[in-house]
């Protein structure tokens, strides 16, 4: 029985971690470029409702995923235009985007309440996921594998690719990057669009995979956890992966402990944990002398305007 439960716990925690990981990967790239977009929750909701709506209408979940990414990216362009082109305050714009997303997704979703779709097909043949070991490797939704691929891609992109180095340079010192001829604004636009698309994908995980349905505020605040995760991971993709699974494990194990009849601490204190842990990590990386290098991108949240 223990192996079966263990495998099931792993699968549940991967499921809980994946949408947060997807959204956080996008936000990580955004923040690495020096932009702080607090509108994650709003973009995730827009992605979730779009994914559901398109899948419900066309019958194609793949189309739903593409639409969710497009919708998330489109929503992020409102943010980009205001903060990058018009140099508006990023904190205020991000919060407005979240309010906007909650409202818009609710309006779009009115016709989809109470409906369901069949969700995403698995990519691996069912036979592979027959035995427990096979299941823990091959038994997930395609989005889980995509999130792993994207983690590797973002890690490679930021450290190995030329474009990624430019993006990081812009996040560390936009002025310097600008003076040697890089287009700060264009790169940040692309980063924000990527962040929006990934948030849309994260939202789609809820409405197509986790609970194939739409209801108001389906993501129930996960966007804020994703935001915390980026900081918790000190802006590093591989730590982000570990952090997402750690957050997922805390959430899953709490429920498993309760299902096994074990009540250790009041659930409210467990719910505080991700946020408290994030504050602790943030403090630690600020204290550690080596951590300074890994700390927040220098230009995070700062508007940039080149004139001429």
């Amino acid at each position: 029985m223990t192996t079966a439960i263990l495998i099931s716990i792993i699968m549940t925690l991967v499921g809980a971690a994946t949408p947060i990981l997807l959204a956080a990967l996008g936000e990580l790239v955004v923040e690495k470029s020096g932009v702080l977009n607090l509108g994650l929750e709003g973009m995730m909701l827009i992605g979730a409702v779009t994914a559901f709506g398109v899948t419900f209408t066309t019958g194609s979940a793949s189309l739903g995923l593409v639409a969710a990414m497009a919708a998330g990216a489109a929503a992020s362009m409102i943010f980009a235009f205001l903060t990058l082109t018009l140099t508006a305050n990023q904190v205020a714009t991000g919060l407005a985007l979240t309010i906007f997303g909650i409202g818009l997704s609710s309006l779009i979703g009115q016709n989809f309440v109470g409906r369901t779709v069949s969700g995403l097909e698995h990519i691996f043949p069912a036979a592979l996921a027959d035995d427990p070991i096979g299941r823990v490797v091959f038994g997930y939704s395609p989005l889980v594998y995509l999130s792993l691929v994207m983690t590797a891609f973002v890690a490679w992109f930021l450290t190995r690719s030329r474009a990624g180095l430019i993006l990081r340079a812009i996040g560390e010192s936009d002025e310097a990057a600008h003076s040697i001829g890089y287009s700060v604004i264009r790169v940040r636009y692309l980063a924000v669009a990527f962040g929006g698309a990934m948030a849309g994908l994260g939202g789609a995980y809820y409405s197509l995979v986790m609970t194939p349905m739409w209801a108001d505020r389906l993501t129930a605040g996960r966007g804020w956890i994703a935001l915390a995760l980026v900081v918790f991971a000190s802006w590093r993709p591989l730590r982000l992966l570990g952090g997402a699974y750690l957050f997922g494990a805390v959430m899953t194990l709490e429920l498993h402990a309760k299902a096994a009849g074990i009540n250790i601490v009041p659930p409210e204190f467990l719910a505080m944990l991700p946020y408290l842990a994030t504050i602790v990590v943030l403090t630690l990386i600020s204290i550690a002398p080596s951590g300074r290098r890994n700390a927040a991108p220098a230009c995070l949240g700062k508007p940039f305007r080149a004139t001429g």
């Binding site: 099931s8 716990i9 549940t12 499921g15 809980a16 949408p19 809820y206 986790m210 609970t211 349905m213 209801a215 389906l218 993501t219 129930a220 996960r222 959430m251 899953t252 429920l255 498993h256 309760k258 299902a259």
Partner: peptide, 10 residues
């Protein structure tokens, strides 16, 4: 919803 689903799975 996500937490409700995970609770049921547990």
């Amino acid at each position: 919803p996500a937490k409700e689903a995970d609770a049921a799975k547990a």
